[in-house]
Simulated scan of single mutants.
Amino acid sequence: MSRSAAKQRVRVSVARLRRLIVGLLALATVAAAAACTTGEDRPRIVVTTNILGDITREIVGTEADVTVLMKPGADPHSFGLSAVQAAELERADLVVHNGLGLEENVLRHVDAARESGVAIFAAGEAADPLTFRTPADDGGTTSGMSPDETEGQPDPHFWTDPGRVRKVTGLIADQVIKHVDGVDESAIRAHADRYDEELAVLTAWMEKSFDRIPEDRRALVTNHHVFGYLADRFGFEVIGAVIPSGTTLASPSSSDLRSLTEAMAEAGVRTVFADSSRPTRLAEVLRAESGGRVQVVELHSESLTAQGEGADTYLRMMRANTTAMTDGLTAATNGD
């Protein structure tokens, strides 16, 4: 091979190498852009329950990616995580969970994330929690019901009181600003302030709606103890629950059902509110126990619905529940 031919071959090889390098750099740029687009480099917040997830998304907006672990319609007391979801907890910048024993099958994963250095915020613990109390503690009529292992324990169902959700909204904003790098503090504050105003409007609307219910008919019976905070905020009396516990994982005895039926008859209660995330079979059993004189009304008390199904945000859930409760209790008053 002549010297000129060899030089020409070297020049061709160098040109090809340059084109290859340029191509690789272009691919790297595209990959980096794709990573940003898909959120790999964006701050990440993981929330356990879908009610808290909706509240957190309202506060965060587009400032960070918010992953919600609990599916619509699931029961917070019994839902579990896949291995992929458990790993997401440990990769998060911030984990928001309810705490107070609500997510019974998820707490060990939250603890593992905490041990790995992830910032954890327990909303229920920060919401001035009430304690579970049986109606007998308030001079009620269900003293014959079996003791509940949650009696005297903190009640995790704080979200039934929108006033406490207003407090938690501000605290979540504080946690996001403190622990999640790259977010715009002014944007987070603006989102939280706007949502706080919406919660104030919700509270006023609920008060006006509940004013339709006569004082002597503001009595609640549910499928398990979930509305203690709502009762405390809006002046209801909790007569009892089909499952005399703060968790849906408990079961009632025949004596529990008999005692509750007697208490309902004494108080003139004809409406039972059953959570949509759990089967209403036990509430139907209670209706059979009372000779069919009890109306069972479905609420969305522990889980949001899928989008478009009437309770897919916290605000819509609370409005739907308020309407159902008001209609159910005023219908009972009118003898329907």
Rank of each mutant, 00 (worst) to 15 (best):
A5K: 12
Q8P: 00
Q8M: 11
R9W: 09
V12P: 00
V12G: 06
V14H: 05
R18Q: 02
A31K: 00
G39C: 09
E40M: 01
E40I: 01
T48N: 05
T49K: 07
N50T: 12
I51C: 05
E58D: 14
G61T: 03
T62G: 13
T62V: 07
A64M: 07
V68T: 14
M70K: 05
D75P: 04
S78V: 07
L81V: 02
S82C: 04
S82W: 01
E88R: 12
D93R: 00
L94K: 02
L94Q: 00
V96M: 07
H97A: 09
G99A: 04
L102Y: 00
E103F: 07
V110R: 02
G117H: 05
V118T: 12
A122F: 05
E125W: 02
A126R: 11
P129N: 03
T134A: 14
A136D: 09
S143E: 12
M145N: 01
T150N: 07
P154C: 07
P162F: 01
G170N: 03
L171C: 04
D174C: 03
I177H: 02
G182R: 02
I188R: 00
A192R: 04
A192E: 00
D196G: 15
E197N: 14
E197R: 14
E198C: 08
A200H: 07
V201R: 13
A204F: 04
E207R: 15
S209Y: 00
R218P: 09
R218K: 15
N223C: 14
F227Y: 15
G228M: 03
A231F: 10
R233M: 08
E237H: 14
A241V: 02
I243A: 07
P244G: 08
S245V: 05
S251D: 13
S255L: 07
R258V: 13
R258H: 13
S259N: 15
L260Q: 08
E262H: 07
E266R: 13
V269T: 10
R270W: 01
V272L: 13
G291K: 10
G292C: 13
V294C: 14
V297N: 09
E298P: 10
L299K: 13
H300P: 04
E302P: 02
G308M: 11
A311Y: 08
D312P: 09
M317D: 12
M318D: 07
A320T: 15
A320K: 14
N321C: 12
G328R: 03
G328F: 04
A331R: 12
N334G: 15
